[in-house]
Design a protein around this nucleic acid. Structure first.
Lengths: 132, 132
DNA sequence: TATACTGTGTATATCAATATATACAGTATA
DNA sequence: TATACTGTATATATTGATATACACAGTATA
């Protein structure tokens, strides 16, 4: 099973964190349904060109959050996630990212009008990415 | 001189990187005018509760980019920055952050309409921060 | 000149992130 | 049962980030 996750070593953010963030999003948004089996840590590490230890770290962290369940010999599965948790996360993660972007904009003295223009451009650009 | 920069050890992003990003923004947006003297590395490290080495790292990196000039015994100063470089940076940094936020939104299946709503909310919230 | 500051160089140490490797225990399948 | 897979544990190693400390060289000021 191919998980739509990408990591970049060029960013200051550690790899394990990049994976956690994206995997958490896939789970909490429902794109990975409850009960779905995730790739083995060896397979996933190979897919993302990182070490098994890194993936295990991710799986363990998410298991500690209760959104993954792992069984030795069998694999890791998406756990049951409450609808409240989902909706909360869904909104919070996005608005947090938005706040960061707005702070960046204000940090370089953008006006609100400029922010809107750049936001539309960003949507356009990311929408085109999705088509690939 | 008090530099409006904040760092958080809770984020996955390394401290030196957080400082670089914010200091670069202040310089390239013109908020720190050419010729402005920055705090000494000892003073700045104390302000931000980190080590001198970390600040030194930041100053050296930005000097390598040509936006700072440093003189032993005297201090570090904002260098002359071409208007083209400023404008380019200004737009690029913001739209990059926007793209990240939009990806996060799409990552949890937000519609474009939802993105707009959350964006307005983010602007509102960050604007209130600025008043403090 | 002495003192207080500035950045630079160097050393040592710790922790986090990450890699590779091996072995073990558990599960699934032929 | 044997094999191939699964996660777990452990070891070793490297690199990056960060801290503290000390000493040196250069600048600024009284």
């Amino acid at each position: 099973m191919k998980i739509p996750i990408q990591v970049s070593v060029d960013r200051a953010e550690p790899i394990y964190h990049q994976i956690e963030v994206q995997l958490r999003a896939l789970i909490l948004s429902g794109q990975l349904a409850e009960g779905t089996q995730l790739p083995s840590i060896r397979e996933f590490a190979s897919d993302l060109s990182c070490s098994v230890i890194t993936i295990r770290r991710v799986y363990q962290d998410l298991e500690n959050e209760g959104i993954l369940r792992t069984r030795q010999g069998t694999g890791s599965f998406v756990a049951q996630v409450g609808e409240t948790v989902r909706e909360q996360y869904r909104k919070e993660a996005v608005i947090e990212a938005m706040r960061g972007a707005v702070r960046t904009g204000f940090g370089v003295n953008c006006t609100v009008e400029e922010l809107h223009i750049l936001f539309e451009k960003a949507i356009e650009q990311v929408s085109m990415e999705k088509k690939e």
